[in-house]
């Protein structure tokens, strides 16, 4: 794909916007449609686009497979871990009220935490699956 300059440049321009949009979807989830899951997918889509255009090798340099796999695992741990934190603070599992003095603030913190967990997992898993498929055969340009 060395000669597909338009594609490469276009991708380079697009990716930051996609990432930004993902972040918007993540943090605007409280107000409009969206949340960790969608954001994670969009994040992953940006990354996959990069890998498709610039080659898996470069994608691996950006984020080694190990890190991606770890993302998938860590996200779940963040989510479940939030539940343990609420238990440690005297509430029941995933009772965000105890996370702050004001219950509704607690809810906010809790939601941010678990949405982060979802984001990390979904991103990690999507990219990991893509790596796994791509890894079966050379997808490099």
């Amino acid at each position: 794909m060395d000669d597909l300059v338009v594609l490469r440049v276009g991708t380079k321009i697009l990716i930051p916007f996609i990432l930004l949009f993902a972040l918007y979807v993540q943090f605007h989830g409280d107000y409009g449609p969206g949340g960790g899951f969608q954001a994670g997918v969009i994040f992953a889509a940006a990354y996959v686009l990069y890998a498709l255009v610039f080659g898996i090798g470069n994608a691996l340099r950006v984020m080694p497979a190990k890190v991606v796999y770890a993302c998938g695992a860590v996200g779940v741990m963040i989510f479940v871990g939030t539940g343990f934190v609420t238990m440690g603070l005297g509430g029941v599992f995933l009772d965000y009220n105890v996370l702050a003095h004001e219950p509704s603030h607690g809810q906010h913190y809790g939601i941010i935490a678990v949405e982060l967990g979802v984001l990390v997992t979904v991103f990690g898993v999507m990219v990991a699956i893509f790596y796994a498929f791509a890894g079966r055969r050379r997808l490099d340009p």
Binding site: G32, A73, V80, I111, E115, V122
Partner: peptide, 26 residues
């Protein structure tokens, strides 16, 4: 205290299901 009820259902009221879904993805 967040306007998007969908998010509050998914993340808080039924947050445990979402945790399960995250586990499914994993």
């Amino acid at each position: 205290e967040i306007p998007n009820v969908v998010t509050s259902v998914l993340s808080s009221y039924r947050g445990y299901d979402t945790m399960g879904e995250t586990a499914v993805v994993f």
